[in-house]
Design a protein around this nucleic acid. Structure first.
Lengths: 150, 150
DNA sequence: GCCTGTACCGAGACTGGATCTCAGCAAAAG
DNA sequence: CTTTTGCTGAGATCCAGTCTCGGTACAGGC
């Protein structure tokens, strides 16, 4: 079975599967392709629709399973957009945060220099033992800033 | 129609409706009561169940509408828990962040002293014009820390 | 190259949260 | 009191995500 897809870089996704000992199936490569072709964030429904349009014959459940898997391997992160939608973004496995363009939806990763101080401060003030945190930023990306608002 | 509920403080919720020019209906007061009685976060399903148990005769849709309304008025915030659940927390209208206890679910508000510096730094590095941000912290609250892990 | 155990897959039923529709009702204004 | 308009309940509907299960194909051993 061959899917004849494009050339987008699936390497990080596929490599993560391999390293973690998961099977490198054609289906998973195809899902990796669909993900790699995307710019910005996407929803599970986007991928399901795309797979259906291209007659790839990939089941709905399989796409959700692949997304969960990539998320577990930290090469994909699940975002909760302000609208309430759930979206996914491919990313590096290291701890970081996302900056989301509220116009075009593209995302960038950001290091949280100095955030630890803020977290520690909040821990001290509230008495909580902070285990994890999540910072999401929304704004207009450089490309969209360069073009007049549509 | 009277609902005969308790004495929890619904004032901030009701006042927000009034100020924004919405009608102060018995139903909305009742939903405000249900919210005010809660500790920590709660889900829409919690309120729907509570209303049904008490035979308040409030429809499912009405509860969702009220939640949306309060959220728009910034007296209620919708949280996306790490589990994927959607929860609500009553809060002050001012900008702030939430600290959620991952054991008992209680929440506290926190000021983001120093966070603006981090946000500005990320804006400079990424070139984004940051409009809003959301910081959520998860940890163990003082009360839960005081009791041995169950 | 072939066999075998097991991970993986597709299809479709199922679940549960959230939304929509619409006729009836009730709050605020005159 | 009457009118206007916003609000409400019931239930249909929608849709994301999960589960089940029979069948498939990968990887490792021979």
């Amino acid at each position: 079975m061959q899917y004849h897809l494009g050339m987008a870089d699936t390497q990080p996704l596929v490599a993560a599967l391999d390293q973690a000992g998961y099977r490198l199936t054609e289906t998973r490569r195809a899902v990796a392709e669909l993900i790699a072709e995307r710019e910005g964030h996407f929803t599970a429904a986007d991928l399901v629709g795309e797979a259906r349009d291209r007659r790839l014959g990939i089941g709905r459940a399989t796409i959700f399973r692949a997304l969960d898997l990539f998320a577990d391997l930290n090469v994909l992160e699940r975002l909760d957009l302000p609208t309430g939608e759930h979206a996914y973004v491919p990313c590096e496995p290291a701890h970081h945060h996302h900056v989301v363009c509220s116009r075009c939806g593209r995302t960038t990763e950001a290091q949280d220099h100095g955030l630890q101080v803020v977290v520690d401060d909040i821990a001290r003030r509230t008495g909580f033992a902070i285990e994890t945190h999540r910072l999401e930023l929304y704004g207009i990306c450089p490309a969209c800033r360069a073009t007049p608002a549509r």
